[in-house]
Design a protein around this nucleic acid. Sequence first.
DNA 1: CGGGAAAATGTAAACGATTACACAGAAACC
DNA 2: GGTTTCTGTGTAATCGTTTACATTTTCCCG
Lengths: 357, 357
Amino acid sequence: MTTIKDVARVAGVSVATVSRVCNGSPSVKEETRRHVGEVASRLSYAPHGAARSLITSRTSTIGVLLPDLYGEFFSEVIRGIDQTAQHHGYHLLVSSSHDGRPAIEGALRSMRGRVDGLIVMWPEMDAEIAVRNLPAGFPVVLLNAPATPDAFDVIMIANFDGARAMVCHLLDLGHTRIAIIKGAAGNVDAAERLRGYRVALAEAGATASPELEVAGDFTEESGFRATRELMLGEARPSAIFAANDAMAIGSLSALREAGLRVPEDVALAGFDDIPMARYLEPALSSVHVDISALGERATLRLLAAIRDKDGHQPRAETLPTILVLRRSCGAAFPASRPTATDSEPAISTIPLLRGAL
Amino acid sequence: MTTIKDVARVAGVSVATVSRVCNGSPSVKEETRRHVGEVASRLSYAPHGAARSLITSRTSTIGVLLPDLYGEFFSEVIRGIDQTAQHHGYHLLVSSSHDGRPAIEGALRSMRGRVDGLIVMWPEMDAEIAVRNLPAGFPVVLLNAPATPDAFDVIMIANFDGARAMVCHLLDLGHTRIAIIKGAAGNVDAAERLRGYRVALAEAGATASPELEVAGDFTEESGFRATRELMLGEARPSAIFAANDAMAIGSLSALREAGLRVPEDVALAGFDDIPMARYLEPALSSVHVDISALGERATLRLLAAIRDKDGHQPRAETLPTILVLRRSCGAAFPASRPTATDSEPAISTIPLLRGAL
DNA sequence: CGGGAAAATGTAAACGATTACACAGAAACC
DNA sequence: GGTTTCTGTGTAATCGTTTACATTTTCCCG
């Protein structure tokens, strides 16, 4: 492995000059620059990242801490982060699948000296504590984290608004018995979506009854089980709102198995609007979240914090959601069929989209 | 940011002792160990990664170079890699979306000194050249790369076998005019799948006719366009084999738009068996690839190479595929309906699965 | 109590880069 | 021609660790 010394020796100059050439310092004679450059590429020299960042104390890398990498949600977040980071000359150091605080803290400390900043996604309620004892002033952006009294930058999804809008829509369609399949316990997104559901009901004068709120954990299978449970209950709901699409998919299977038609017998709606939603039969109504935009926003915010380490003011941003109505909720419009041209719904300020998406 | 010196000063010992405590060296008095450990955690000290890897020349990080992060395929690969790496105490440094050789080479050199080894996925035919001028002996595993005369470790998918098996199956069903929607030009996977298609036809005594081989680029939209083109031609195919599932989805839309029923009027099959395939209407027959296993294998291979830097013998591995028959290809079996219990098809040596998956 | 072995700790040289500062030679000025 | 000013280049300190080696402390035994 060739080092800067090798290049210096072969080129017959000092290491300082080689360094200057590599970093495009203006105070190098054109002739020297050419010569050194030649030698460097002949020896296929590449500066040693660790050595460089040790002295410059910049790594051009941002760390990403995720609960998991499974499913379309996380991969989309990563994509959004990566694209933005890439574009600004940053790498991504990814770390996922940690269970519990000690694991998170371990991951956090192992990133010391390897990253310039962190994007942490940890929707568990107690995650923020782990982040607290990071060195003060270390750039961090939280994703979907519990409300943090402006100590950190936070990017959130409009979980509450989205859920409320969807339930309102179901109410408008005339449903009175609307069930919810809840998300994982202790998860912020889940809690907010539940709150949206309850408020929507309350606003309509309906009272939330406990037997209409069944537990789930964001997995397809939990949606399946929850729906079975609901259907065994005495007062069947006429509509089901699943706290995410994966559970809605499970729910759909359970409904089919029970011989119930969607939306004629039971209306169904999800949350997230993963790409698969449009391809289900019937196409799934959902609350669209521009997930990769979530990653992008977080990255931009983090880069800003890295650049302006002192003057940076933490703030909370909320990413709006869009109600996407398809057949499964029973809204009155012709059966939608996916076409190859509508690759992805456009993000806009329009809060409601119907049909072909 | 506290350094090892701070800890040493506060604890009243030398930096060497602190270092020994941190790395669990046996030659430290129990009392000292406790005391230093206490101070360290009180000051919330974490070793500086760059400094450490500069001297130890190990980074506990593996670099991953991908063409893109979009779609279920890549996110699954990453997941497979991450889980395995995580499990062995390694981090992931991800870099994607580079166009052309200069960009790849830039990405490669920028990883010098940051990673212990590389997993490179670059199905373009000329990618291997870029990897060639890495420092000799640097651990690299190639994913889906063009055949490399055992200079590198390579993990491949059984593209040829899978495609041939699928086309054979279509032939068995009685189809004589089978079209293929080809993958991106210059892509190894695409080339191999095409070869499998041609060989299957040849073996059946059928001659491949050029108008049945239409261009595509692995995107949903290209599948849509390609199918339109096919249906406008004079001799319509009775079956379409798309070189990946995304294109099959596009194809399905085009067929619907043309008022053709699948599989009654036209049989359809894809490749990859992405999760969405089972949820299409009709469920899509496909060639299943255990994508995350691909990542896992690559990682294990890389870790082996890292451990045994000198003795390591490069080798090529091929990951088998499984034929998954669902409704879209018209095989005779009852209409499948996804249930919540078959979350993912089990990998087995059984080369053919029918039905409910 | 002295001395040698063993155990525990300290000292200092790496690792590979960047960069403030010193310094040499050339050009510019009076 | 001698000082001054530039322009390039070299010297050496520095970043935060690890670790070979030197040194000190502890312990045991005669």
